[in-house]
Amino acid sequence: MKRLSWFNATSLTLGLAFLYLPMVILVIYSFNAGKLVTVWAGFSTKWYGSLFQNEAFMNAAWVTLKVGFISSCLATILGTMAAIVIVRAGRFPGRTLFSGMIYAPLVMPEVITGLSLLLLFIAIGMDRGVLTIILAHTTFSMCYVSVVVSSRLVAFDESLEEAALDLGCTPFDAFKSVTLPIIAPAVISGWLLAFTLSLDDLVIASFTSGPSSTTLPIKIFSAVRLGVSPEINALSTIMIGIVAFGVITVSLTSKRAITRAKREEQKAFADA
């Protein structure tokens, strides 16, 4: 049927090369034996070894995972609540302010968010550490979660909930047994998004972290500011690998689920 014209094929190829070539080079040179990241000096995995020996990096990675996990769970709960408020709660005093506060962090420059949270923590005399990073990350990622969940909620057919009420559910029961299972995919992707945002954040973490709570991005940033280092390449490769593995697994399972559903559907119509 549709065949790609040479123009479209070229723009797709060049575009994908632009998107992926830098990362491919980064991954290849993480296996470079030499200290320079631009000159190939034979294959080696020694930088991975030295990375795992580097206690500062390992500690930072642990802090990052801890912050990411806790803040994304909190953000998912708060963000889902906020999405329900925005889509379902109707009018209430301060609704405009509420939806403004949900959308503003999405476009707010990170430097401002970071600065403002830092000034808050100082003003209330809170010591900066893991807790303050968690609070900061929860605040901005809950907004992303609420956008993801509310877009699913908007498409949700409210008559399903009415049907549940009609069949004897209390409103809470109806939410738990009908709405939540149906919007679950959006809640899960909201969690994933919040988790990645937290793992990825440099600027806000720099403002809100204390000396004892350095996260991985802060560590990476201070290392690469000085120049490129093969150890960072190795670390990046691991991070890219985890993401690629996760995304490919998810897309393959969902693809398989879709094909299975399609097959069953066809069978259903054949039977009917």
Partner: peptide, 16 residues
């Protein structure tokens, strides 16, 4: 609604 001895068949069917 959940306490009424009345049930409804929805236009969209609203099947879960």
């Amino acid at each position: 609604p959940n306490k009424r001895a009345i049930n409804m068949m929805f236009q969209s069917y609203a099947l879960f």
